[in-house]
Design a protein around this nucleic acid. Structure first.
Lengths: 239, 239
DNA sequence: CAGTGGTCTAGACCACGGG
DNA sequence: CCGTGGTCTAGACCACTGG
């Protein structure tokens, strides 16, 4: 807090609050101290605290509720996935079911070492899973996570892993995914895609590569998702 | 301004300012009145004017410059196009060159009528153009605009049309594009794609459909852009 | 009801831009 | 230099939530 001397007060507060979220002083889904308390604690006007919080609300770190308080937001990692036709029989958005096809522990290849910023020869867990909506395969994913951080997942019964990995990472391994970067490209179906996704070889395939990282920007997971391009539509509004 | 009686003052101001932009009282690239002036004019505190402007800055309607003033922003419609490899020989982002392959005036088909919300039988101008970077064809576009609004473009020498259409729409036809909605999907190359883009038939193609509209949300243009998927990468950061 | 965030005021002083 | 937006204050009152 005593650093950043040249910065405006509201930015110093913003940094302090960001740190509180990142180091776990303020926990996800928990209320932070009231604006009046923070103003007293940092010896600034309430308006200055509000301005600091405004910024963190804008970047979705925090969330305000009138009359209840201000809360640390837990990020949602729907991501580009949501642009596949992920709807259940009722038409509502559905979390795809997961079927884990393979799990193995192996030395990281050069590409994995680079993506996860590991030292050469480090071991990783590789997961290969199929995701289905309404029994139909929608996409399949190859996932690499460093064994050092995720050792409990190397032996855990696959049946207990459930459909969502990030809550598992947090609950079982204490690893919190705070950011992710995704890149969408287009490829054509190889033999494995064709078999898993019930499509023709050389049909267009959407490929999403994701690096997920923690609050310290350390890479936690490298994931490559492949799905039939025919089930994909991405919409944006400009201005 | 006298409407919206139940709304907070800053939201009434926000609406009034939005209207000023939409009806042209405040012109693109022009400075709006100073915060102090607006506060006096609307009989509110400067802080309330600032809060109203904050919202419009956040949604990119306005742009602030310390010491200079607050300006009406002219939207840029790079859009999803920018995710093709649009770089010149120097590596800097380049506006693709345009080569108009066809221009015709014809009655709108059912799809065009729907996209542009025309009455049945209305006439439209159809443009078909190829866009090139560094002499290489990157994508081609089919564009429909209602003849009623864009009559000057039906006869204008093609050589005078230049590489960018929206400035032309504004300068020659007085039509200002204020919003656009784009949808990205994947298709495979048909015979025309293969010829124009120098690719194999059935190769994956990125298709971007765009409806561009004016401040009143009236559709001005329906555009379908097709480019080789191999030159496409879309990156996003989550949280 | 007490406590939270939401709105609004009226002022002070600072930092920057352009003539 | 003056006018602009940027920061910050100290307070008032409102609207909503929860017990």
């Amino acid at each position: 807090m005593t650093g950043d001397m040249g910065l405006p007060a509201y930015l110093r507060l913003r940094n302090a609050f960001t740190r509180a979220v990142e180091d776990g002083t303020w926990q996800p889904d928990q209320a932070i101290p009231s604006e009046a308390e923070l103003a007293a604690q940092y010896a600034v006007a309430v308006g200055t605290v509000r301005k600091a919080i405004d910024g963190l609300v804008a970047d979705r770190t925090l969330q305000r509720f009138q009359g209840r308080g201000t809360f640390v937001r837990r990020p949602e990692f729907n991501s580009l996935l949501r642009f596949f036709r992920l709807v259940g029989p009722d038409g509502a958005p559905a979390t795809p079911k997961s079927a884990i096809l393979a799990r193995e522990v192996l030395p990281a290849t050069a590409r994995v070492v680079e993506a996860l910023k590991l030292r050469a020869g480090a071991k990783v867990i590789r997961l290969h899973r199929l995701r289905l909506v309404d029994e139909a395969p929608i996409l399949h994913e190859e996932i690499f996570i460093p064994l050092a951080r995720f050792r409990p997942l190397a032996k855990m019964p696959l049946a207990e892993m459930g459909d969502l990995l990030y809550p598992l990472y947090e609950r079982i391994c204490g690893q919190i995914v705070a950011h992710a970067q995704e890149t969408l490209t287009i490829d054509v179906a190889d033999a494995r895609d064709a078999e898993l996704l019930a499509t023709a070889q050389n049909a267009p395939i959407v490929v999403i590569e994701r690096i997920a990282s923690d609050h310290q920007r350390a890479p936690l997971e490298w994931r490559t998702t492949r799905g039939k391009a025919s089930g994909f539509a991405y919409k944006i509004d400009i201005r």
